[in-house]
Computed example of a mutant assay.
Amino acid sequence: MTKAIRIHATGGPEVLQWEQLPTPQPGPNEVLIHHEAVGLNYIDVYFRTGLYKAPLPCTIGMEGAGTVLAVGDDVHDFIPGERVAYAGGPLGAYATERVIAADRLVKLPSDIDFTTAAAMMLQGITAHFLLHRTFKVQRGQTILLHAAAGGVGLIMCQWARALGVNVIAVVSTAQKAALARDNGATHTIIGHATLAAEVKKLTGGAMVPVVYDSVGKDTFNASLDCLTPLGLMVSFGNASGAVPPMDIASLATKGSLFLTRPTFATYAAARADLAASAAALFDIVGTGQVKIQVNQTFPLRDAAAAHAALEARRTTGSTVLLP
């Protein structure tokens, strides 16, 4: 039997239920894995609350690391006993065992442990495509990054520093500002009430070519005001709620701005892209230029407490659930 966190209705953390289910068996092109660690991400909250839709009941979670238990027909790249990790779904990670398509898995290097892997796959690959593909940052540029003390934020701060890019990190507390600076941020701003004015001062009036905003509703308009003409607004999350409908003409009046809403699912849809991003992530972590900070762990059965801490902004870095 497999134990899993399931939801039968959307709502607060209390809807997360610890249940026992039959262990699934792999079909063609599928792999059965035993989880050693499961990643916690804000997208899990979106599915739990119903902001993102999923058939109910379901097991949420999109990232994990563990050991191959069995493989289905036509699986040739993995064998039982191998160490693997994945991110990006489909849903089902909050479980002791799960089945997943073989083309969604990557093999773990021997120097990366399961807890680190579960903390880094979704957030690290997200950081990779944001910095290298959504907007290809260039040495000497200055970029603006919200939620810089979170899991994706700390990886982006370090990776940007390795690329010679200056980061203006936006955080909610002085403690988080210090953490962002320790991880490579050049400047920090606490809160967003006077964001554009502070960015203008820090950049000598030049503003920034790109803003990475995972906060959503509360910061969206302030973020737009921080961009140079022809700048790119990257809205990649909704921690404060979904961005409300906007008048597209405001992009013109603010300097012919560009706006994108990237998702992991799109950027990692092709097996080749997933593998390339994972390889780049393993490489930068292997060099020590990016360190994955697992600052909180919870037993998987206590996922509700982990969600409550994440939503209350009581977490920094990455959080991992341990089956």
Rank of each mutant, 00 (worst) to 15 (best):
P229S: 13
P209F: 08
G140M: 10
G216E: 10
D103M: 03
T96G: 08
T134S: 15
W18C: 08
Y46K: 11
T134F: 12
A180D: 01
S235V: 07
G27M: 05
R139V: 08
M1R: 00
D77F: 07
P245T: 00
H8Q: 01
L257H: 07
T134A: 15
Y42K: 10
A222K: 08
I43D: 12
Q17D: 12
L281A: 06
G81R: 03
A147V: 04
H192R: 03
C58M: 07
S256I: 02
M62Q: 15
H307D: 09
I43H: 12
Y86L: 05
T10N: 15
F129T: 09
D225W: 02
P244L: 11
G153K: 06
T142K: 02
I189T: 01
L144I: 00
V285S: 01
G64I: 00
D283C: 03
A252R: 13
P22W: 07
V234H: 10
Q158W: 04
T173S: 15
A252P: 01
L144W: 02
G255L: 05
P80I: 04
A95V: 00
G216R: 04
K217Q: 11
A306Y: 07
E63G: 05
I143M: 01
G317P: 02
A252D: 13
L310M: 13
S214I: 06
A118K: 05
H192E: 10
H132R: 13
P80K: 05
F129N: 12
L310W: 01
I112C: 04
T260H: 03
K201E: 15
G184N: 04
P24Y: 05
L257I: 14
H76C: 13
L51P: 11
S240K: 06
A65Q: 03
S223E: 02
L163W: 00
G184F: 08
A87Y: 12
Y46H: 10
D225E: 09
M1K: 01
G50W: 12
A252M: 14
Y52K: 14
G12S: 14
A118H: 07
L108T: 02
W159R: 05
G50K: 12
A306W: 06
T59D: 06
T96Y: 03
N166C: 15
K254M: 06
Q141L: 04
H34C: 08
L202N: 03
L16Q: 06
A9K: 14
T23F: 05
R271P: 13
D283I: 07
R314Y: 10
L274K: 10
A70E: 15
